[in-house]
């Protein structure tokens, strides 16, 4: 596992998200209205909608395709829907963001 720098918190709009691309998949990095940051897989458990394109409210995001609501903290679908996405540890050091990703995942691209 490695802490990998991904940029600064100001690169993400408030109540918005940006993507971090990896060879295997895309990670969506969110910044909430309270300035908390979260990283989850950019793929809705329902029909693989890009969660980074959803509307962010509180510590959740609503998927743009079919309005599933996903908790940014747990990755779990909220309400009546069932499913979960992978979450990633994210570190915020004075605005500098880094995420913890497994090394083999990155090597897999080679």
């Amino acid at each position: 596992m490695n802490w990998t720098d991904i940029g600064h918190i100001d690169d993400i709009p408030l109540r918005g998200a940006r993507c971090v691309k990896t060879p295997g998949f895309t990670i969506a990095v969110f910044r909430t209205g309270e300035n908390e940051v979260f990283a989850i897989e950019n793929r809705c458990p329902h029909k693989a909608g890009p969660l980074s394109e959803g509307i962010v409210h509180g510590a959740s995001v609503t998927c743009p395709l079919h309005n599933w609501v996903i908790s940014l903290e747990s990755g779990q679908a909220l309400g009546a829907d069932e499913g979960a996405v992978q979450t990633f540890d994210i570190r915020n050091e004075n605005g500098a963001l880094s995420i913890l990703i497994a090394t083999p995942m990155m090597v897999a691209a080679e």
């Binding site: 940029g7 993400i12 971090v20 691309k21 990896t22 990155m106 691209a109 080679e110």
Partner: peptide, 14 residues
Amino acid sequence: HEFKPMASVGYGEA
């Protein structure tokens, strides 16, 4: 910002 990823990681070695 909307049209570009924030970062790409894991491609370096490849």
